[in-house]
């Protein structure tokens, strides 16, 4: 288990993290979402020992991460970084050695990974001669070359074309299948929805939502009801207790039901207006969940 436990961090007056915590199971992929400046990068840097947490810790297999156990982590920083003038193959081998591989093993692993990522022919070139997409692949090779036990990747998909996205997704799924917990941050929520077993949404220094995408949906489920009543004279739903009209346009109505409100009473009210062409709970997309989660502070949050 990779556990992020109650991380707090302030930079001067600015409180960036106020108790961020989540858990990633081995072999699962965790998508880390949040607006710009929400604290995703800071959270990952704390895990990598690049930023010191004011409070809280990150544990792997029950033990706090230290310099030694961090070498078992494959890391891709948000700001990509490679030696521009160093040769691709030597560079990947160098990172393998820094993670503890012997010279021969490092060279072998470097060749293997470059071959796998389609860079076999470029291993003798300086990194700066490669296209950005290929540099990104070298970066990934540098993160994966030491057979890490954990992967922490900050915005790994940014700047990749759709084919690059697919091959990176493939590589990460492969790692997860091998039992490696993978944490990555991304703004591409469709991708997160597609790849991740679990999602965490960070806003204002806190995790405002964590769980599988289905769990998050279920949380939001039973709240938004879309009813289409073309012949309705408005307002038809106000009389039903516990119902608030979110939007209404030409009979296409989205209603929010409070806990305990009776959806069948809503249906009855709708039928009284005439035809009902659509009656269903809204399946929110991750994008909607995300908007909902980060939009405005809930009263409890604001009070906290």
């Amino acid at each position: 288990m990779l556990e992020f436990d109650a991380l707090h961090k302030s930079f001067g007056e600015v409180r960036v993290l106020e108790g961020v915590g989540f858990t990633v199971a081995p072999g699962s992929m965790f998508g880390f979402c949040g607006s710009n400046g929400a604290g995703k990068t800071t959270t990952m840097r704390i895990a990598m020992g690049l930023v010191r947490a004011d409070a809280g810790e990150v544990r792997w297999n029950g033990r706090p991460l230290d310099q030694v156990s961090r070498r078992r982590i494959g890391y891709m920083p948000e700001e990509r970084g490679l030696y521009p003038k160093m040769k691709v193959g030597e560079q990947v081998a160098y990172f393998a050695k820094l993670h503890g591989l012997g010279s021969a093993a490092a060279a072998k692993a470097s060749d293997e990974w470059l071959e796998r990522l389609g860079l076999g022919a470029r291993r003798g070139d300086a990194v700066e001669k490669l296209s950005l997409g290929n540099q990104q692949r070298v970066q990934l090779a540098a993160a994966l070359v030491s057979r890490p036990e954990v992967l922490i990747l900050d915005e790994p998909f940014s700047g990749l074309d759709p084919i690059g996205v697919d091959s990176l997704a493939e590589a990460l799924l492969g790692q997860a299948r091998d039992g490696v917990p993978v944490v990555f941050s991304s703004h591409q929520l469709d991708l997160v929805e597609r790849l991740c077993d679990a999602v965490g949404i960070l806003a204002r220094g806190r995790m405002v939502a964590t769980g599988t995408v289905d769990e998050l949906r279920r949380r939001e489920n039973g709240r938004l009801l879309r009813v289409v009543v073309p012949d309705a004279a408005q307002p038809w739903a106000t009389a039903v207790p516990g119902v608030r009209i979110v939007s209404e346009r030409a009979g296409d109505t989205v209603l929010e039901l409070a806990d305990g409100a009776d959806d069948q009473a809503v249906l009855a009210a709708a039928l009284r207006t005439g035809r009902v062409t659509h009656f269903a709970w809204q399946q929110p997309t991750l994008v909607e969940l995300f908007r909902e989660a980060v939009a405005v502070p809930t009263p409890q949050e604001a009070a906290a």
Partner: peptide, 17 residues
């Protein structure tokens, strides 16, 4: 400066002090 400018230093500091 090369390590800072290329940001490779972040990757290095993840493995060493």
């Amino acid at each position: 400066v090369e390590e800072k400018a290329s940001r490779v230093v972040e990757l290095l500091l993840a493995t060493m002090k």
